[in-house]
Design a protein around this nucleic acid. Structure first.
Length: 203
DNA sequence: CCCATGATGCCCT
DNA sequence: GGGCATCATGGGT
């Protein structure tokens, strides 16, 4: 069951927590890439110094964040990696959830090619773990790039499904890579599934 | 294990 | 021209 618009319009931290265990799916001309979401971060917009939209900043790049919920916000970082976010809240409120870790499900052999230009069977154990345990890594594995920026997650190309019913132990932690954000640096807006090996950083 | 560093492109000032 | 919601690599401990 695909998640509907109403899922995304809610409180951003709630969405970030509830995305854990859900399945991110990318259909590339019939080839399916998918993975279970195991790590997320909430970015709370206007009041959050770590968010791109802090203080109501509104530029061309940020228009997607100000748009309707349930769309993809994908941006280039450090000149060579992408970060995939889910836009939350009602239109006009620029908040989002960054997906930081995925456990591969479908298309794993192609993920290996996308990441390391090798067959899955040729990867070391470390490389298998490094397929999708970080925001830039999972975008490379799943073929998520700037051409999908703004994509509607309620469509058929890129979407999120209900996962298996399971009880998850969720860890709350500080966000990563936002040392510039003053007090917001220490806000506990990162969530991950305890014990999952595709979490980018434990603790 | 840890830490330091370079890669690389686009946005925004 | 500065800085960035990252990653791979290489060297030290």
């Amino acid at each position: 069951m695909k998640l509907e618009r109403d899922f995304y319009i809610r409180d951003t931290r709630t969405v970030a927590r509830e995305l854990l265990g859900k399945i991110l799916v990318h259909n590339v001309n019939g080839k399916i890439f998918s993975g279970k979401i195991v790590e997320t971060e909430a970015y709370l917009g206007i009041v959050d110094k770590a968010a791109h939209s802090y203080g109501g900043k509104r530029t061309k790049r940020l228009e997607i964040m100000y748009g309707p919920p349930g769309r993809a916000y994908i941006y280039l970082i450090y000149g060579m990696y992408y970060c995939f976010n889910v836009v939350t809240k009602e239109e006009g409120t620029p908040e989002a959830v960054l997906i930081r870790g995925l456990e591969p499900i479908d298309g794993i052999n192609d993920m290996a090619k996308n990441r390391f230009n090798k067959e899955l069977s040729q990867l070391s154990n470390t490389q298998v773990k490094n397929l999708t345990n970080g925001p830039g890594k999972l975008c490379q594995a799943m073929k998520l790039d700037k051409y999908l920026n703004g994509e509607d997650l309620c469509g058929d190309t890129l979407y999120i499904e209900e996962g298996k019913v399971e009880s998850l132990s969720i860890v709350t932690a500080k966000r990563i890579g936002i040392d510039y954000a003053e007090e917001a640096r220490d806000f506990p807006y990162r969530y991950y599934i305890e014990g999952n090996s595709y979490v980018s950083k434990v603790k």
